[in-house]
Design a protein around this nucleic acid. Structure first.
Lengths: 340, 340
DNA sequence: GAGGAGTATTGAAGCGTTTCAATAATCTAA
DNA sequence: TTAGATTATTGAAACGCTTCAATACTCCTC
């Protein structure tokens, strides 16, 4: 490697025969410097292969044009959708989005949040794994703006963008009830707030219906295709009269796993023996073995709105008022829960 | 906000009644400072809510514990798999991975690479959209290590981790030929090197077979489910005798789109009328309406190896030798290409 | 209790920027 | 021409950290 692999603004100034301040101006206030001078400087920059050192810039300027995004499951297409939308929205404002995936691990989530805090990003979008208000407050105290994604925040604490999970759960189960199902199973990881809310909505639907219907809960620690398959096999193994007549899976990955398990050897017919409703309406839901009914979340809108909120928070600082935006989910009916 | 929202190491030192160097030592060389002193300092840190300013640290230390990863399609589960593996491998080495998604846009790719360059990340993993050697060379000259992902590099220039796309294409088509298919369609965006290589492999298989078989190319600018659906509808609309008797889609998203189009109104039977092979073997392939045959790429291995290479490059600097690791893909046969 | 060998702590220097008051160069109008 | 106004350029002073030589403590041992 060259003796001086990383030229500094100083080197550029020297080569161009101008002062260091001028180089900085070329970079940051181009219209403050004469065209001829600018050209000299640009040539020098090019010649040396100069790249501004962001650390130094940020140190001095105190701000960054980067947003951080922390999600707990990037393997879930729902989140990549949200991420893409956020990325596009941020780009329009001149910001870049850097993503970190935590795979539901609190410890890694903590690391990413710390990293973004240390890097002094302009703001962080986070879909929290658990109750991490404490850490979020910490960031906010430090001056790093935070917007919760897919999770409603306490009004006073910060902005959030979420979907009404209670309503989603309710709609899903009401639909199954309307299809004549009475033994309704619920699959998901109840540790997750979103899932707990969906369950609560499901419960509410059952209660409203009267006491001819019941809800069976199948807890599943992961929310993956694999986990769904495992629950599915457990159900296949159960005696026929113990099985539910329908299932509400709290995300589509689980639902697809269930489908796989039920199709295996044609063990269980969908929807005849068990009707199925998923959640998120990911792209793949429509092309599952049995096209999947699902609760659609407006993922694009979610990402865009989150960026909007954080932008407001960044630029309006003091007189920014926290908002909690909640969208309504929407039932999409396909074969997996069609009338028997 | 407080008048001093962001306490510095100075403030901590003052509060703890020690010198600034000691605080730094508590942070970086804990076993160099007496327990009692350390405790005082930690208390002060806690009390002030101090967070180390990464910009300053990096500016002085000149290095960072962050890797950048730039991919062209985070919505493709294949890449999230690779990303997760990389993230885990990096974590083991004490590094964090920040991801940027370019959605195939060269311009955005450029931005992310620049951003990472400016941030002086330790290294960058990039699955390039096109021929970006020029920019990569630039980064490398600046001292930012780069490893190509899913794309073979020129030996001399940098490390790369990829899968033998030619072999993959060949295997896919040989399989279709073995199933008795003769009019084989290829779907994909030929601008992408990986896809072009798969096509070349497919061509080779056809040529080896003799002249009773032919390859029809269906170009598709996107590689998404939606794009696949469009190609599918075009094929459905064609006269029966003009249709291929089988299709090799250059990724699973396309393949799933094709499936959707063919299933629509039961227009075309898979595999009877058209057999189908996808690429990547994403999780969802197995649970498609018609379980999808596919070419499996070792995504986990890809991510892990990429991190391994970049770690070597980071730590061994001068006497690091670029390596181009190529893995072999593997055919997974499912219903979509089973014997008619 | 003095000398010496650790062991802890200090604080100044400098990383590469941006910023800003001071200075220099250029232009305008009389 | 030149004073005065305008526009460009300069360079020193931070920003908050790490590093490292210098200094100040401890603790032994004789």
């Amino acid at each position: 490697m060259n003796p001086k692999a990383r030229p500094s603004i100083q080197d550029v100034a020297r080569l161009a025969g101008v002062s260091l301040g001028t180089v900085s101006n070329v970079l940051n206030n181009p219209d403050m410097v004469r065209a001829a001078t600018a050209e000299k400087v640009l040539k020098a920059i090019d010649q040396l292969g100069f790249v501004r050192n962001d650390a130094a810039r940020q140190l001095k300027a105190g701000k960054s044009l980067t947003l951080g995004m922390v999600v707990y499951d990037l393997a879930n297409p729902f989140f990549t959708e949200v991420g893409r939308a956020a990325e596009n929205a941020a780009a329009e404002n001149g910001y870049a989005v850097l993503m970190g995936n935590t795979d539901h691990r609190r410890e890694r989530e903590k690391q990413y949040l710390q990293l973004f805090d240390q890097q002094r990003v302009a703001g962080v979008l986070v879909s929290p794994t658990a109750d991490i208000y404490e850490q979020i407050d910490e960031l906010r105290v430090h001056g790093t703006q935070v917007v919760l994604l897919d999770r409603k925040a306490d009004a006073a604490r910060c902005c959030s963008v979420s979907v009404d999970d209670f309503a989603g759960g309710r709609v899903a189960v009401e639909h199954l009830l309307a299809q004549g199902r009475r033994r309704i199973g619920f699959v998901g990881n109840l540790q997750m707030q979103q899932v707990a809310d969906r369950l609560a909505g499901a419960m509410a639907a059952i209660n409203d219906f009267g006491n001819q219907a019941q809800l069976l809960v199948f807890e599943s620690s992961d929310m993956t295709v694999l986990a769904g398959r495992e629950v599915g096999h457990r159900i296949v193994a159960a005696a026929q009269q113990d099985r539910p007549d329908s299932l509400f899976a709290s995300n589509d990955l689980l639902a697809m796993g269930l489908v796989q398990a039920f199709m295996f050897n044609g063990a269980i017919q969908i929807p005849q023996e068990i009707a199925l409703v998923g959640y998120d309406d990911i792209d793949f839901a429509a092309s599952a073995v049995v096209p999947l009914s699902s609760i659609r979340q407006p993922s694009k809108l979610l990402g865009e709105t989150a960026v909007e909120l954080i932008m407001d928070e960044i630029s309006n600082g003091q007189n920014h008022v926290h908002r909690q935006v909640t969208f309504q989910p929407e039932l999409v009916v396909r074969d997996s829960s069609a009338h028997a």
